[in-house]
Amino acid sequence: MSGNGNAAATAEENSPKMRVIRVGTRKSQLARIQTDSVVATLKASYPGLQFEIIAMSTTGDKILDTALSKIGEKSLFTKELEHALEKNEVDLVVHSLKDLPTVLPPGFTIGAICKRENPHDAVVFHPKFVGKTLETLPEKSVVGTSSLRRAAQLQRKFPHLEFRSIRGNLNTRLRKLDEQQEFSAIILATAGLQRMGWHNRVGQILHPEECMYAVGQGALGVEVRAKDQDILDLVGVLHDPETLLRCIAERAFLRHLEGGCSVPVAVHTAMKDGQLYLTGGVWSLDGSDSIQETMQATIHVPAQHEDGPEDDPQLVGITARNIPRGPQLAAQNLGISLANLLLSKGAKNILDVARQLNDAH
Rank of each mutant, 00 (worst) to 15 (best):
L100M: 10
I323C: 11
F253N: 01
G280A: 14
G168Y: 02
M196E: 05
A339G: 15
L341H: 06
L177Y: 00
K70F: 10
S146K: 04
H305Q: 12
F108R: 14
Q296K: 12
S45A: 11
L177S: 03
P105K: 11
E210G: 04
E209T: 03
Q153V: 06
A266Q: 02
D286H: 09
R255A: 05
G287P: 03
Y277I: 03
P302S: 05
Q332C: 03
G197V: 06
V224E: 05
E139M: 08
H126P: 12
E73H: 15
K70D: 09
V39Y: 10
N358P: 15
L188T: 11
H199E: 10
V38Q: 02
T269F: 01
H207D: 05
E250Q: 09
I113S: 03
I63L: 13
Q217H: 07
E223K: 03
R355L: 11
T109M: 09
L188H: 12
D228C: 12
P159A: 12
L92P: 02
H305R: 04
L170A: 07
G317D: 13
D228I: 02
I110S: 01
L188C: 11
R173F: 01
I166T: 06
K70A: 09
R321Q: 06
K345C: 05
P47T: 11
L244D: 00
W198I: 07
Q181F: 11
G287A: 04
M212S: 09
L97W: 00
T145P: 01
S57M: 03
N171V: 06
L334C: 14
F77D: 03
S165C: 11
G221D: 03
R164E: 14
V124Y: 00
L161V: 07
P208I: 13
H239F: 01
L220S: 06
H95A: 09
L334V: 15
V267A: 06
I323P: 02
E73P: 08
D65S: 10
Q314C: 13
D312N: 15
A44M: 04
D233N: 14
G218W: 04
S147H: 00
T66H: 08
D61A: 00
C211E: 01
A191L: 01
Q304A: 15
Q296A: 02
V39Q: 07
L206P: 05
R116Q: 05
A191F: 04
I299V: 12
P106N: 13
T59S: 14
Q332W: 13
C247S: 10
L100E: 13
I205N: 10
S262A: 15
D230R: 13
G326R: 06
K272V: 15
L154F: 07
G192L: 02
E306F: 15
L193F: 06
K348N: 15
E135N: 08
R150M: 06
H305L: 10
I110R: 01
A354R: 02
V143K: 04
E162Y: 15
V222S: 02
A112Q: 08
D233T: 09
Q50R: 11
S146C: 15
L357I: 12
S184N: 13
S290Y: 13
D240I: 06
V123W: 01
F77P: 02
K98R: 02
G287I: 05
G287F: 04
V124A: 12
H95I: 02
H239A: 13
E310P: 04
W198Q: 07
G260S: 00
I350L: 03
A266I: 04
I110T: 05
V353A: 10
L81E: 03
T319Q: 01
A219D: 05
T78S: 08
A67M: 00
E179N: 12
D286G: 07
N333T: 00
R325V: 03
I231V: 13
M56C: 04
D178T: 07
L254V: 10
Q181P: 05
K227W: 07
